[in-house]
């Protein structure tokens, strides 16, 4: 779906993207994670032919970009760095103009395309007030509607839940999963770990323009070698575990053990009731913090000589 090789973008003396080899497969829900300013948006813009790479190759939907980007773009829906619309026109009018601006699709079915897209993002009842009067969440939904307008095979979404409330985020997540199950590949760029963790099947982590990690989400979240046990008989459990207990918080125990099934059998065999048992996995946050350095929008002063380390 998306393949890049040694993709590099230099703005003057700053290296925004540095030798990225991206690999998004058909059917993926790919989460492109990285701190603010790590080059995510530049990356997205290069995939869409808005920004030209300094070096490296891009292939999207089997075609080289930017050379044949005009053949790729009609099959892509995208949201780049926030939604945008003509503020003095209504959302409907904006979508109609956008639909008319590009190739494909007869004029006669334009209205139904626009209504379908609005309904998909939950804006079907929107009136004729201008976009200027829309809330941030409504603008975000309108932006998503414009991405969905052409029923794309590939969705490239940069921070799609920006400005949405928790319910809105949930709706959009459901929508994306539903589209993905119907065959749309979703490439989502975000700095929100929770969003990616709940939605994506594959992740790529970028830091200072470099891709530092790219794998299946389940593979990234490796077991920590600990099992979380919830038991109404904590004291009996502690006695049985003898020394493998790492931490106890009321009825919740953290046990050093590789196999939750075996541990469960041992506990139940010893007459301990078990209310819940799960293998502890590393959270995406731990993984990301481990592979990334500081946030690019943090600017520390130069360390003073003689200051405490």
């Amino acid at each position: 779906m998306i393949k890049t090789h040694g993709l590099t973008k230099r703005y003057g003396r700053t290296l925004a993207v540095d030798g990225v080899d991206l690999d998004v497969r058909p059917g993926d829900r790919y989460g492109f994670l990285g701190p603010n300013g790590s080059g995510k948006t530049t990356m997205v813009r290069m995939l869409l032919g808005l920004v030209y790479a300094t070096s490296g190759e891009i292939e999207v939907l089997g075609e080289p970009v930017p050379r044949r980007v005009h053949r790729v773009l009609p099959r892509i829906g995208a949201l780049v760095e926030g939604p945008a619309a003509y503020p003095h026109l209504s959302g409907r009018r904006n979508l109609k103009l956008l639909d008319a601006a590009g190739p494909g699709g007869p004029r006669r079915t334009r209205k139904s395309r626009v209504e379908d897209a609005l309904a998909a993002v939950g804006l079907s009842g929107v009136d004729s007030r201008p976009v200027r009067a829309y809330s941030l969440g409504m603008r975000q939904r309108l932006g998503l509607a414009s991405a969905l307008l052409r029923k794309p095979e590939l969705l490239i979404l940069d921070e799609p839940t920006n400005g949405l409330d928790p319910r809105g985020i949930h709706e959009i997540r459901d929508l994306l999963i539903q589209l993905n199950e119907a065959g749309t590949t979703v490439f989502l760029s975000s700095h929100l770990l929770a969003e990616v963790e709940q939605l994506c099947t594959r992740v790529g982590v970028v830091d200072k323009g470099k891709l530092v990690l790219q794998d299946e989400l389940t593979a990234v979240r490796t077991p920590t070698g600990r099992v979380l046990v919830d038991s109404p008989d904590p004291a009996a459990a502690v006695a049985l575990l003898d020394g493998r207990l790492e931490h106890r918080d009321g009825s919740r125990l953290v046990v050093r053990h590789d196999d939750p099934a075996a541990l469960n059998a041992q506990l139940v065999g010893g007459g301990v009731r078990v209310a819940g048992i799960t293998e502890q996995r590393r959270t995406l946050e731990e993984v990301v913090l481990e592979v990334t350095t500081s946030s690019a929008d943090r600017i520390d002063g130069a360390s003073r000589p003689g200051a405490a380390p």
């Binding site: 813009r45 808005l50 980007v69 773009l73 995208a78 945008a84 956008l98």
Partner: peptide
């Protein structure tokens, strides 16, 4: 809106 026009395309 320029970027959205260009990717329309």
């Amino acid at each position: 809106t320029l970027r959205y026009l260009l990717i329309r395309p």
